[in-house]
Nucleic acid binder design. Structure first.
Length: 288
DNA sequence: CAGTGGCCCTGTCTGC
DNA sequence: TGCAGACAGGGCCACT
């Protein structure tokens, strides 16, 4: 559920709450949370003790903290991951997976994850250049709010695909940060059906879609992200307020805010797609 | 090679 | 009441 706006809220919280503080001890309570750290949970704990995060970075839905050692603590929240900065005497969360304490004795960093789709790992010495990203994230495209995002390359890339537009929006190697919620919202705003064939979309249509993607991401950021339940919260445990501004996602049967037609839910890629059947007519033969 | 679909995981909700 | 099944879904990986 955390998509770009939610992950950005967490990144900002890490910048405020963790950067510049020296890690004292790390304890992994659930090995699956560090399964991508191939050297194992014990190594994860050992290599982080005594290290100091120097920044909090994000690309798409990935987060990383460059460390004074030159390594990077990298993470993904998956479906239900939370990074909380809380007082040490706060009772442990039910799904606490990793705990970080700091040498100043102040607030702890806790990785909490009910469904364990998320995870943390340390990527060794991969941050030499100023713009470098950890090697495990190198295949992820820039996101639409990144100043260096290449609009032309995105439009060319979409038109070269042979698939539906929503699949393209969800492909993190083409454009990152967009998940099921914001894909549906941006497509509704652009009046495009999710199955529209990518090769039929003109550059002006794609430019408009990209503008709507950016609009919905920025509006959600301003609202602190979208929280359907307690699964997405900021580092301070605060929910976002953007759910009340959603036009289609999760609104099956409710009237479209533009035309009044009841919102439709379709099965799509083992999940759901929400559309207005009138504003976003289903293309024939994947075309129009 | 690109595109597609199955799977991982747990809590909540619905229907028999 | 109890239990099975559906659903939530990002990303990885196997398969076509």
């Amino acid at each position: 559920m955390p998509e770009l706006p939610e992950v950005e809220v967490v990144r900002a919280g890490l910048e405020r709450g963790v950067v510049g503080r020296t890690i004292d001890r790390v304890s992994v309570d659930h090995p699956r949370a560090v399964r991508r750290h191939l050297a194992g949970a014990r190594d994860f704990e050992d290599v982080l003790a005594g290290r100091t995060p120097t920044a909090a970075q994000r690309r798409g839905k990935y987060l990383w903290l460059p460390l004074d050692s030159g390594d990077a603590l990298t993470g993904h929240l998956g479906m239900s991951g939370q990074l909380l900065v809380v007082p040490p005497d706060k009772p442990d969360e039910t799904h606490l997976r990793v705990r970080f304490t700091f040498t100043d004795g102040g607030r702890e960093l806790r990785f909490v994850d009910q469904r364990t789709f998320g995870g943390l790992l340390v990527v060794a010495g991969s941050l030499s250049g100023a713009a470098a990203v950890p090697s495990t994230i190198a295949h992820i495209a820039r996101d639409p709010v990144d100043p260096e995002f290449d609009d032309d390359a995105f439009m060319t890339g979409v038109r070269r695909r042979k698939t539906g537009i929503k699949r393209a929006l969800l492909d993190q190697t083409l454009v990152s940060g967009i998940g099921n919620i914001y894909a549906d919202e941006a497509l509704w705003r652009a009046k495009l059906h999710y199955a529209r064939a990518t090769e039929t979309l003109t550059r002006p249509v794609l430019a408009e879609l990209l503008a709507q993607v950016r609009a919905v991401l920025h509006e959600s950021l301003a609202a602190g992200g979208t929280s359907f339940d307690a699964l997405y919260v900021s580092t301070e445990g605060v929910s976002g307020l953007f759910e009340r501004e959603l036009h289609v996602y999760g609104r099956e049967g409710e009237p479209c805010d533009r035309c009044g037609a009841p919102i439709r839910r379709d099965a799509f890629m083992n999940r759901s797609s929400f559309t207005c059947p009138r504003c976003q007519p289903r293309p024939r033969n994947g075309r129009w």
